[in-house]
Protein backbone atom coordinates (compact mmCIF):
# COMPACT_ATOMS: atom_id res chain seq x y z
CA UNK A 1 0.00 0.00 0.00
CA UNK A 2 2.33 2.61 -1.23
CA UNK A 3 -0.17 5.33 -1.91
CA UNK A 4 -1.68 6.72 1.25
CA UNK A 5 -2.81 9.95 -0.24
CA UNK A 6 -6.38 8.90 -0.32
CA UNK A 7 -6.32 8.04 3.37
CA UNK A 8 -5.54 11.59 4.33
CA UNK A 9 -8.61 13.28 5.67
CA UNK A 10 -10.00 16.63 4.72
CA UNK A 11 -10.22 18.33 8.08
CA UNK A 12 -13.39 20.28 8.67
CA UNK A 13 -12.64 23.89 7.81
CA UNK A 14 -14.67 25.83 10.31
CA UNK A 15 -15.09 28.88 8.10
CA UNK A 16 -16.78 26.86 5.37
CA UNK A 17 -18.49 24.23 7.42
CA UNK A 18 -22.25 24.18 7.84
CA UNK A 19 -23.98 22.04 10.42
CA UNK A 20 -27.02 20.21 9.10
CA UNK A 21 -28.78 21.37 12.25
CA UNK A 22 -28.45 25.01 11.31
CA UNK A 23 -31.57 26.87 12.22
CA UNK A 24 -32.84 24.09 14.46
CA UNK A 25 -30.56 24.66 17.43
CA UNK A 26 -32.21 27.69 18.99
CA UNK A 27 -30.79 27.74 22.52
CA UNK A 28 -33.21 27.80 25.40
CA UNK A 29 -35.38 25.67 27.64
CA UNK A 30 -38.41 23.91 26.22
CA UNK A 31 -41.16 21.46 27.06
CA UNK A 32 -42.54 20.53 30.45
CA UNK A 33 -40.02 22.15 32.77
CA UNK A 34 -40.16 21.67 36.51
CA UNK A 35 -38.37 23.27 39.43
CA UNK A 36 -35.78 20.50 39.16
CA UNK A 37 -34.65 21.95 35.85
CA UNK A 38 -34.63 20.31 32.44
CA UNK A 39 -34.81 16.54 32.29
CA UNK A 40 -32.24 16.48 29.50
CA UNK A 41 -29.68 18.70 27.84
CA UNK A 42 -29.18 18.43 24.08
CA UNK A 43 -26.05 19.60 22.28
CA UNK A 44 -24.51 19.08 18.90
CA UNK A 45 -20.80 18.35 19.24
CA UNK A 46 -19.19 20.33 16.45
CA UNK A 47 -15.61 20.66 15.24
CA UNK A 48 -14.91 16.96 15.67
CA UNK A 49 -12.66 14.81 13.55
CA UNK A 50 -14.20 11.39 13.20
CA UNK A 51 -12.47 8.34 11.86
CA UNK A 52 -13.44 4.72 11.56
CA UNK A 53 -10.68 2.19 12.05
CA UNK A 54 -11.28 -1.30 10.69
CA UNK A 55 -8.85 -4.15 11.08
CA UNK A 56 -8.32 -7.14 8.85
CA UNK A 57 -9.47 -10.46 10.19
CA UNK A 58 -6.16 -11.14 11.93
CA UNK A 59 -5.04 -7.66 12.94
CA UNK A 60 -7.46 -6.54 15.65
CA UNK A 61 -4.75 -6.39 18.28
CA UNK A 62 -2.46 -4.34 16.10
CA UNK A 63 -5.23 -1.85 15.41
CA UNK A 64 -5.94 -1.51 19.10
CA UNK A 65 -2.28 -0.67 19.67
CA UNK A 66 -2.30 1.78 16.77
CA UNK A 67 -5.36 3.59 18.14
CA UNK A 68 -3.81 3.72 21.58
CA UNK A 69 -0.72 5.36 20.11
CA UNK A 70 -2.82 8.21 18.70
CA UNK A 71 -5.61 8.50 21.26
CA UNK A 72 -3.58 7.72 24.35
CA UNK A 73 -6.29 5.48 25.76
CA UNK A 74 -6.27 1.81 26.68
CA UNK A 75 -8.72 -0.35 24.78
CA UNK A 76 -10.20 -3.48 26.16
CA UNK A 77 -10.70 -6.64 24.11
CA UNK A 78 -14.35 -6.99 25.17
CA UNK A 79 -16.95 -6.15 22.51
CA UNK A 80 -18.14 -2.56 22.72
CA UNK A 81 -15.43 -1.37 25.05
CA UNK A 82 -14.21 2.18 24.77
CA UNK A 83 -13.15 5.31 26.56
CA UNK A 84 -14.71 8.72 26.74
CA UNK A 85 -12.51 11.66 27.58
CA UNK A 86 -12.91 15.35 27.09
CA UNK A 87 -10.87 15.58 23.92
CA UNK A 88 -11.20 12.09 22.52
CA UNK A 89 -13.76 9.31 22.40
CA UNK A 90 -13.03 5.80 21.22
CA UNK A 91 -15.30 2.80 21.13
CA UNK A 92 -15.58 -0.53 19.45
CA UNK A 93 -18.96 -0.94 17.71
CA UNK A 94 -18.43 -4.04 15.59
CA UNK A 95 -15.87 -6.85 15.46
CA UNK A 96 -12.58 -5.20 14.49
CA UNK A 97 -14.13 -1.76 14.11
CA UNK A 98 -13.69 1.35 16.21
CA UNK A 99 -14.99 4.84 16.03
CA UNK A 100 -12.55 7.52 17.06
CA UNK A 101 -13.81 11.08 17.51
CA UNK A 102 -11.74 13.94 18.79
CA UNK A 103 -10.92 17.58 18.62
CA UNK A 104 -7.51 17.30 16.90
CA UNK A 105 -7.94 18.51 13.31
CA UNK A 106 -5.45 15.95 11.97
CA UNK A 107 -6.79 13.07 14.04
CA UNK A 108 -7.81 10.95 11.05
CA UNK A 109 -4.51 11.45 9.26
CA UNK A 110 -2.70 10.47 12.45
CA UNK A 111 -4.79 7.35 12.74
CA UNK A 112 -4.11 6.44 9.12
CA UNK A 113 -0.40 6.82 9.75
CA UNK A 114 -0.50 4.80 12.92
CA UNK A 115 -2.66 1.97 11.57
CA UNK A 116 -0.68 1.73 8.37
CA UNK A 117 -1.19 -1.56 6.60
CA UNK A 118 -2.72 -3.28 9.61
CA UNK A 119 -6.18 -2.06 8.74
CA UNK A 120 -8.10 0.73 7.08
CA UNK A 121 -9.02 4.18 8.28
CA UNK A 122 -11.95 6.06 6.83
CA UNK A 123 -12.64 9.72 7.43
CA UNK A 124 -16.22 10.31 8.53
CA UNK A 125 -15.76 13.82 9.93
CA UNK A 126 -18.34 15.16 7.47
CA UNK A 127 -20.52 12.10 7.33
CA UNK A 128 -21.63 11.83 10.92
CA UNK A 129 -23.28 14.23 13.30
CA UNK A 130 -22.72 13.73 17.01
CA UNK A 131 -25.48 14.73 19.39
CA UNK A 132 -24.98 14.61 23.12
CA UNK A 133 -27.84 13.97 25.47
CA UNK A 134 -27.19 14.48 29.17
CA UNK A 135 -29.33 14.88 32.24
CA UNK A 136 -31.33 12.82 34.71
CA UNK A 137 -33.89 11.73 32.12
CA UNK A 138 -31.49 10.83 29.30
CA UNK A 139 -32.12 7.10 29.62
CA UNK A 140 -35.88 7.58 29.62
CA UNK A 141 -35.74 9.66 26.44
CA UNK A 142 -33.30 7.34 24.68
CA UNK A 143 -35.44 4.34 25.57
CA UNK A 144 -38.23 5.84 23.49
CA UNK A 145 -35.98 5.67 20.44
CA UNK A 146 -33.74 2.66 20.83
CA UNK A 147 -34.34 -0.94 21.87
CA UNK A 148 -31.25 -0.86 24.02
CA UNK A 149 -30.91 -1.46 27.74
CA UNK A 150 -29.46 1.81 28.98
CA UNK A 151 -29.33 0.73 32.63
CA UNK A 152 -26.01 1.45 34.34
CA UNK A 153 -25.45 -2.23 34.92
CA UNK A 154 -25.95 -3.04 31.24
CA UNK A 155 -24.21 -0.06 29.65
CA UNK A 156 -20.88 0.86 31.18
CA UNK A 157 -19.33 4.28 30.90
CA UNK A 158 -17.15 4.49 27.78
CA UNK A 159 -18.92 1.58 26.14
CA UNK A 160 -20.38 1.98 22.66
CA UNK A 161 -22.70 0.11 20.35
CA UNK A 162 -24.45 0.24 17.02
CA UNK A 163 -28.22 0.22 16.80
CA UNK A 164 -31.05 1.85 14.91
CA UNK A 165 -34.24 3.83 15.26
CA UNK A 166 -36.37 2.54 12.40
CA UNK A 167 -34.38 3.62 9.34
CA UNK A 168 -31.87 5.73 11.24
CA UNK A 169 -28.63 3.93 12.02
CA UNK A 170 -26.97 5.20 15.16
CA UNK A 171 -23.82 4.60 17.15
CA UNK A 172 -24.29 5.29 20.83
CA UNK A 173 -21.57 5.77 23.43
CA UNK A 174 -22.08 6.36 27.12
CA UNK A 175 -19.76 9.26 27.87
CA UNK A 176 -20.74 10.20 31.42
CA UNK A 177 -22.93 9.33 34.35
CA UNK A 178 -26.09 10.29 32.43
CA UNK A 179 -24.49 11.41 29.17
CA UNK A 180 -24.61 9.64 25.84
CA UNK A 181 -23.20 10.62 22.43
CA UNK A 182 -25.31 9.57 19.48
CA UNK A 183 -23.63 9.41 16.08
CA UNK A 184 -26.08 9.56 13.19
CA UNK A 185 -25.62 9.86 9.44
CA UNK A 186 -25.44 13.51 8.48
CA UNK A 187 -28.41 13.30 6.12
CA UNK A 188 -30.64 12.05 8.95
CA UNK A 189 -29.43 14.61 11.48
CA UNK A 190 -32.31 17.06 11.15
CA UNK A 191 -34.93 14.35 11.38
CA UNK A 192 -33.20 12.79 14.34
CA UNK A 193 -32.75 16.06 16.14
CA UNK A 194 -36.45 16.84 15.75
CA UNK A 195 -37.32 13.41 17.02
CA UNK A 196 -35.07 13.85 20.03
CA UNK A 197 -36.63 17.21 20.83
CA UNK A 198 -40.10 15.78 20.55
CA UNK A 199 -39.20 12.83 22.74
CA UNK A 200 -37.67 15.18 25.34
CA UNK A 201 -40.61 17.55 25.53
CA UNK A 202 -42.34 15.54 28.23
CA UNK A 203 -39.38 15.87 30.64
CA UNK A 204 -38.33 19.39 29.67
CA UNK A 205 -35.09 20.01 27.80
CA UNK A 206 -32.43 22.58 27.32
CA UNK A 207 -30.46 23.31 24.16
CA UNK A 208 -27.14 25.06 24.64
Amino acid sequence: MADRRSFVADPVIAAHAASPLQGLKRPGEFGALTDDGPGVFLTERTGLSIGEVASWKDSEGKCRVAIRAVAGVMLNVAPGSGTAKLEINVFNFAPGRWLVAGTKPDLVAQLAGSVGEDGSVTDLSHGRVVIRIDGPKSRWVLSKLFAINFANTAFARGQGLATMHHDITALVQRVGEDAFDIHVFRSFARSFWSLLRRSSEEVGYRID
Partner: peptide, 16 residues
Protein backbone atom coordinates in the same frame (compact mmCIF):
# COMPACT_ATOMS: atom_id res chain seq x y z
CA UNK B 1 -14.99 -15.06 0.59
CA UNK B 2 -13.85 -14.68 4.19
CA UNK B 3 -10.26 -14.98 2.99
CA UNK B 4 -10.38 -11.60 1.27
CA UNK B 5 -8.99 -8.65 3.25
CA UNK B 6 -11.38 -5.90 2.28
CA UNK B 7 -13.17 -3.36 4.46
CA UNK B 8 -16.31 -1.55 3.42
CA UNK B 9 -17.63 1.68 4.91
CA UNK B 10 -20.63 3.68 3.77
CA UNK B 11 -19.43 7.20 2.96
CA UNK B 12 -22.64 8.34 1.28
CA UNK B 13 -23.04 11.05 3.89
CA UNK B 14 -19.36 11.99 4.02
CA UNK B 15 -19.31 13.47 0.55
CA UNK B 16 -21.45 16.20 -0.92
Amino acid sequence: WPDLSVNLTSVTDQWA
